[in-house]
Amino acid sequence: MTTDAMSGNEPTRRGFLDLALGLLGAISAIGVVYPVGMYLWPRVDKKEGDETRSMKLPVGDVPIGEAKFVRFLNKPAVIMRPNEQEIYALSAVCTHLGCVVKWNDAGKDLFCPCHGGKFDVKGNVLGGPPPKPLPSFTAKIENEYIVVAEA
């Protein structure tokens, strides 16, 4: 089509109608995409205690030489007491690919079942693929309670 009206910048009836049609199409598309997007986007219900920056549990819950797995800051964590004096709290999420580590009672260390990562009670990597140590939290015993807090 090479009429004068089409070649110049003059607004044309057809051009206007094409634009109007395009806008209507865009509004319709938003009318579908917006509700479907809102519908599908996950809404996580906050549980009580998720936001707590520290946690407290009776000292008897973690016997000497054993490990206790807890949820801290909404993620798995582990508390260990290798002896009477020491107490450690670590994130239990392996730094390799996010599996939850397990307590290896034979070696008194942590073992990741996914790809064989090994950590000591302080979180240092002993072997396997993990690139960094497990993040640690502060843990101390106060009046027969273990108090874990962000480092």
């Binding site: 509700p35 479907v36 809102m38 519908y39 986007w41 809404r43």
Partner: peptide, 9 residues
């Protein structure tokens, strides 16, 4: 009741 536009879908 809770999911946005769930009633519509």
């Amino acid at each position: 009741n809770e999911v946005p536009f769930g009633w519509l879908v």
